[in-house]
Each structure stands twice: as C-alpha cells, then as structure tokens.
Design a protein around this nucleic acid. Structure first.
Length: 429
DNA sequence: CGATAATGGT
C-alpha cells in the first residue's frame, strides 16, 4: 500500500467512530490533494466512490470535476480531461469559467494552442465571459511560441473588452516581451503599469532585472532597482539575488557586494542562494581561497548545502587546485551534507579530461558504493571520453553496469557510441 | 462557511 492510499485509508472505515461525516467539501479537498500530488488513480477512485463512502449524501460537483480536469491536464492526460468535461455535462454539471480556463491552459501546455483558442470561442458561445485568467494563459503561451504580435492582439482585445489587468498580466507581458527580445517595450509597459497602480510586488521588476543582467545591461538593472525605491516598491530577496548573481557572473564581485550591503541594510535577510552566487563569483574571479574561507564560516553557521560545495569543487578544479577539490567530498560529509551526482560528475569530468578514464570509472563505482546514483550526465561524461581502443565488450559491460544501477542513459550518447557497438557485437557472435 | 485555474532568481 502506498503512502497516499495509507493516508486516506480511514475513509474506508465507518465514520461513526469520529462522529463526523465528510461532505462534498471534505471530498473535494482530498481529491484536489491527490491531484496536486499527481496521483490521478487515487483522485479518480475517490470521486467514483464518494457517493457510496458518504452514504449517498455527497455527489461530485463542478469543483470536483475542475480539480480532476486540472490534475489530468498537468499529468499529460488531456484526452481524459476532455472526457471528464463531457461526463460532467452529461450529468448536468455545467462547465464554468474555471473549467474552461483549466482546459485552455491544459491544451496550451500540450502545445495545442489552436484547440485552446477554439475553446475560448466555445465558452463565449455558451455565454461565458473569458476572464483575466483565460487571457493571461493565452498570452503566456503565445509569447512562449514567439508570437509577440498575436499576444499583442489578445492584449488589445482584453483591454477593449475591459477585462481588468492584474499582477499576473503584468508579469506575463514583461516576461513575454523580454524573452522575445523586446526589453525596451517591456520597460515601457512596466512604467505604464506603475502609473495605473497595477504593480503591488517586486515580481515584474525581478523579471526585467533578470533579463537586463542576462544581456549585460547592469547599469540599467541597477537603475531599475533605484526606481523601485522611488516608487515605493519593496525589492525582495529575489530582486537582490538576481542582481548579485548577475554581477557575480559578470565577474564584478565589488558590485555584487555593494548590492549585498544594500540588501543587508534593508530588512532583507540573504538566503543560501545568494551566498552560493557569491561563492561562485569569487571562484570565477580567481579568489578561490576567499571563497573557501566564506564556505568555512557558512559551514559553522550551518548555512551550506550540496550546491555550496559543488561550486567550490568547480572553483578548485578550474584554478588547478585538484588535491583540494578531491578532499571536499569527505569534508562535506563531515558537515552532514550529502554529495549529489553533480558533486562526482565534476570530478569525473576532470579525470576524463586529463586522460584518467580508468580512475573516472573507479570513482563512478565508488559513488555507487557511497549511495549516490550516477545520472545521465555521468553516463555521457564517461562514454564520450572512453578510451578509443577500449574493447566493445568493455564498453557494453560499463553500459550494463550503469543501467543495472538504475541510470537512464543519455539518449544521444547511447545512440552514437553504445548502440553501434551493440550491433557490432551481435553481428560477430 | 469551507474546496478548484495562470507568473519570478544559481
């Protein structure tokens, strides 16, 4: 019996024991919980049995169906979702705006924007008015497809129909414009939204600051931060984290630390992500020893994770301090931090790069012994570096070993390197 | 009364 079934197994018992009968809302909460966990079998089972389990007092309603439909859409079962929509109509539960919004998002996510747009028309025909959620979804997926003009048209339509814009609309437009290269337009739109008092949190600004950093426009990014203060918008950890990471990637530790100071002077507490960014920045800047001191301090504060150490390992390797890099897995274990596959992948890649493929293979078997599963990256690293005059049997043996340990092979590597050898092998034997 | 839909940073 799996955990989720176990958690809900009390439902099978007579409710007399507690003296409280579950009603539709109780069931809907459980159905939605199951859907959110992706356990659609359980969700469906609950819905099919709720009438009997409740002694005939509870029947699925539109909320039940909307939850189910959303669950199926999110787990790739758009066909089942469509069947459920038909089913609810058959038992006289009218699909409402939420039902359509959920289906429209589902079809868009599945890459069927055409069908999503058809559903928009259909809901209007049935007398339902698409709300901002529906418009936001459609615009988001048009932008994802790169259809900036289409999204603009939908936005105009939304304004014409006087559907209120919300903070979601703002962030979707900001991100959509940015990701399609319209940074100036995004900035213009953000200013306009500020004028209309549509912006209540740092969300949209964070998106724009992120894109400005990614396009190396740090002055503009910093200016935007300054403007947030002017407009009374409170920057959050994400705002600072984005700027700090941007500066670190740029190799400008000084600016990163300046932003850090600004953040600490405000009431915002730095999080682990921010420290990891700084550690990465210090390494990139050649200041690995400073990075190491920072990690030591953070470790004493209990403020480190796997990524902290992985970043430092990368830093040591990039500056040639290999012995220090290889000592880190033990150190992190002492600090109670579990090494990840990425920890060993970094070291394995280094060994391969310097022709020590045998040692790399040994490290891979060691990580298995230490309870860390190799992944498709480990697989790719080993096979793309494997000795050219290594025998086919050896390659296949390594492949079999890794697959047996639960590794899902990297598709391209398998097709190009391992699979040809397998055929060769079967041809000769 | 209570339960359901869309957005961000290593």
């Amino acid at each position: 019996m799996n955990l989720i079934t176990r958690l809900f197994s009390w439902i099978e018992w007579p409710a007399f024991y507690s003296g409280i009968w579950p009603n539709v809302v109780t069931f809907n909460m459980m159905v939605d919980g199951a859907c959110k966990m992706g356990d659609m079998d359980l969700a469906l089972k609950l819905v099919r049995k709720m009438e009997i389990m409740s002694g005939g007092s509870s029947k699925p309603n539109s909320v039940t169906y909307n939850s189910l439909i959303d669950g199926f859409c999110k787990t790739g079962g758009i066909t089942v979702a469509e069947e459920l929509r038909n089913e609810m109509m058959k038992i006289d539960i009218e699909p409402n705006v939420r039902t359509y919004a959920t289906m429209i998002e589902g079809y868009s996510r599945a890459g069927c924007l055409e069908e999503a747009l058809r559903l928009c028309d259909e809901m209007v025909e049935r007398g339902l008015l698409p709300n901002s959620v529906v418009y936001n979804s459609i615009m988001h997926w048009l932008y994802m497809e790169g259809d900036v003009d289409g999204a603009s048209l939908v936005f105009t339509d939304m304004s014409d129909k006087q559907i209120p814009l919300d903070k979601f609309t703002c962030s979707i437009l900001t991100r959509g414009l940015c990701r399609n290269g319209y940074i100036t337009e995004a900035l213009k739109f953000l200013n306009q939204s500020l004028e209309n008092n549509l912006i209540e949190d740092a969300f949209s600004h964070n998106i724009l600051i992120n894109f400005l950093c990614k396009s190396n426009k740090f002055a503009a990014a910093r200016q935007l931060l300054a403007r947030m203060y002017l407009r009374g918008l409170v920057p959050d950890v994400v705002t600072f984290g984005t700027l700090i990471d941007g500066h670190c990637k740029e190799g400008n530790i000084e600016s990163a630390v300046q932003v850090y100071d600004t953040m600490v002077k405000g009431e915002e507490k730095p999080n682990l992500l921010i420290y990891n960014s700084i550690i990465n920045g210090l390494c990139k800047d050649g200041l690995v020893d400073v990075a190491r001191s920072l990690v030591d301090v953070l470790q004493r504060m209990g403020f480190v994770d796997t990524i902290t150490y992985n970043t430092l390992i990368n830093g040591y390797i990039n500056c040639g301090k290999f012995d220090k890099a290889f000592k880190l897995p033990t150190l992190m274990q002492n600090a109670g931090i579990f090494a990840s596959s990425a920890t060993y992948n970094t070291l394995i890649k280094f060994l391969c790069k310097f022709g020590c493929v045998q040692e790399a293979k040994e490290l891979m078997t060691m990580m298995v012994l230490w309870g860390v599963l190799p992944d498709s990256i480990t697989y790719r690293t080993l096979f793309t570096n494997i000795d050219k005059n290594c025998s086919a049997e050896e390659v296949i043996e390594l492949h079999d070993y890794m697959v047996l340990k639960g590794v899902v092979p990297d598709k391209l590597t398998y097709e190009n390197i391992v699979s040809p050898l397998l055929q060769e092998e079967s041809a000769t034997s």
